[in-house]
Design a protein around this nucleic acid. Sequence first.
RNA 1: GGACCUUUAGCUCAGUUGGUUAGAGCGUUUCCUUGACAUGGAAAAGGUCACUGGUUCGAGUCCAGUAAGGUCCA
Length: 955
Amino acid sequence: MAHEGLLASGNGRRLDFWFNVKAMPEITKSYEPHEVEKKWYAAWQAARCFAGKAEPGQETYTIVIPPPNVTGILHMGHVLNNTLQDALIRRARLEGKAACWIPGTDHAGIATQTMVEKHLKKSEGKGRRDLGRDAFLERVWSWREEKGDIILKQLRQLGCSCDWDRTHFTMDPGYSRAVLTAFVRLFNKGNIYRGKRMVNWCPVSLTALSDEEVEMRPTKGFITKLKYDLVQPEGEITHLVVETTRPETIPADVALAVHPDDERYKALVGKKVWRPLGERVALPIVADAAVDPVFAAGVLKVTPAHDKVDFEIGQRHRLPVIDALNPDGSMNAEAGPELAGLDRFAARKKATELLRERGSLLEEKPYENNVGYSQRAGVPIEPRLTQQWWLRYPRVEEAKQVVRDGLIQFHPERWSKVYLNWLDNIQDWCISRQLWWGHRIPVWYRKGIDRERLSEADLADPTKVHVSLDGPADPANWDQEEDVLDTWASSWLWPFATLGWPDEREMKAADYAAFYPTTTLATGADIIFFWVARMIMAGLEFTGSDLDKPLEASRRGHAKAEALSPEELRRRIPFRHVYFNGIVRDKQGRKMSKTLGNSPDPLDLIAKYGADGLRFGLLQIAPLGQDVKFDEDRIEGGKNFANKLWNACRFRQMSGPMADNRSLEAILSRLKTTQVDDDDHALLSALLETMTTVGRGFADFEFAGATQRLYGFFWNDFCDWYVEVAKSRIQDPEAQPHVLAVQDLVIREFLLMFAPFAPFITEELWHLLGYGAEGLFLQDARIQTAEQLTAALTAHGLAVDVAASGRVEKLKQFTSLARQLKADQAVAQKRDVTIHVLASDADWADLSAASAKLVRLVGAASLKRTSDKPALPAIVTPLGTLFLDTGIRVDAAAEKIRLGKELDQLRKHVAGTEARLANEAFVSKAPPAVLEGARRQLADQKAKYAEIERLLAAL
RNA sequence: GGACCUUUAGCUCAGUUGGUUAGAGCGUUUCCUUGACAUGGAAAAGGUCACUGGUUCGAGUCCAGUAAGGUCCA
């Protein structure tokens, strides 16, 4: 190509792509999205349109993407979430802000490891342990290399304008360093500790889980009622009755517990019972307030190794702990020879049988209770006593404060209550995972040390435990911790780690100073605890003036955090707004899921309806904070709207010569004040109102309102009315340039408003209609506020007359009623009818002025004034009584029925309004404007009533 | 058990601070291929705004309660 090479433009963009898009044929008959989408996305990228770059002093708008799982593929939830973000970021660009949307992916520890393991099993029949840690991790990395970018590529197809040069991955070297830095800092501050505690154990993934990863589900099972015989009968009492849903854990029982105030059992506390299963051992009866005396018989079997409450009771009474389960959920030797080796569910059945055989079982009945499931693996978790790393959350109070005080705003606001409630009841976070894929915890143990017995003092002793980013200088003497960190313990740093934190040079390169705090976070409320709350705490902990402090500020100690000033809080919050988008559900209201197969593939939808159609259609049905019931018809509606826009622009192109559209100023100077009519005023009023509504929609995150207004304005106000009435004006050589200028203005402003929702078609039309000077994109234009446009119009001598809308509205009604009458007379398609109007001078003046438009719109040969009541089908309009001459004899009987019906309806309305006005209380208390309105309404109704009566009489 | 959300036309949803005869899209019925668009145009039918009570001159809108469905926490 002759034009190869770099052509500098004002902002230094590559322009060599331009020659491919410049010479366009005339607009085609229908909009074909695919080529357009491909072309413009490539052009935007070549020109680096999405680069987040802030000029000094420029207002910024930053969004960090909720990083999808690196193994993920695009689903409808992503489409909604990312379309919202793209709309926000594109709007910000049009408002002249330095917009920066940072993309990336999450390594998603459990999900990814499980996926690769499954794949390995299937293709090679091997488990991860067959390969060993290093070899397995290599496999995961190569999986990531191969598939990790799929979802990001899919986002491009959707039109997302992320700054791809800023793409991050939570396992990238820089990001990993951030994660480890956070760990080391919190460790040094004393927020991180190691402890043997009850955790939620997933027997499938073989790792601990945080409380948030456990989902409570009502589960149907059985409850077994059984007896524990007293070692020495106490009077008539020979045994205690216990009910349990987990008989397989009886061999791990170490006591029975009763409530201390329970009179039934007071005498028994301190006595012993025989364990009915497993080794025959005498178990003590203890009194503990944690026992619910109302549940069953008020006796609890205490199994410290397999229940959190039981564990605590055991601690209080210094009871031993017997663990009868293997990590994978099967029973071990402690369970006794009958149960050992069985899976926990098989063991449960077997245990019941054994109890029955031995006469200990009193009853077995169906029972439903809440069971904790591993969110990821979908199996019941086991409470399990293990050594784990725990985090005492930092900055909890400040995290509440910033939301309570509105420094961070939630949309919809009600989620702040959920957030605050969680923070009020916050529990320490189990951050270690027994996985391989993740950030390995930067802790090294001196070789030979007994890890099970490390005390808090040992953790602070650098000769025993080493904690640092780079590890000990003498690695041969140390063993690194095997566990990795919870995935969320890396993604909670996302808003600032993606801006280079904690590396000063990286931060400078990423322009942290300009882009942090970020502006808006768009996400689902389902991860409010997992992610949103934790990001807020992390931001408050790690950013702001703490950036200046050296990393290894102190050796481990319990440093008391100083209070943060309001300015400091403002510097540290990770975002100012959190927009919670709804969940996309299917038509029946079910969550979309792979297993149900009710989730359409977004790429199929893009192929069918175009990216713009998908985006616009989806946002139209996504009200603030409400779940979205997906309806493919709406997406089709989005496509149809794109086609409507396309054709309106096509018609503009066909209507007359294109003039200078390259700037707002150029278009405004083509308006002719002498040619401005009511339709212009009404259209411009509607445009200004739309600009206000759309602007407010963005500010309030009310996208459904904005998209609906755009739809209504363009389709109804512009296409159905203005373009139609303008068809006659365009024939007039005097008026034509003006009318086309109005259209050019409205289309321009519409494209700017619509572009954030439908970036592709708007860009294409922007160029086809010559709005962009060569080398510039739509995003290089600045969107106007309604006030700015009003001022600009006024400066060109066009003061928009809002009252014109009322006059146009009457003409619309006249037209509609005329069509209605024609349809009623079965001559809807005839265009040679004559319309006679009995009208006042004023009304006739309006009608005759619009005569050319009206006959065209109605489909009539002519519009004439009459002074009597011809015996013709008639209808009362706001501009007089309209008579339709079809040239056919009038069916007087049918007319009488038709008018009679209308009269009946009208009579009801008149009666209603009269009753209202007859109400003394209404007249005395209603505001004058309302009263006046009611009076005028009554007068209109009565006049119309009288007119119809006269028409009837004339028949 | 606690908190929150939803309930408006056959379907999916709007309805701003209470104020004329409650709107849109899809679907349905009828008519129209008149040179932007049949992915379109015109017209029509279709709603006791979940229920009960209250506040008010006036309630889809505010308050209380009930019912159904849903979500989160325990």
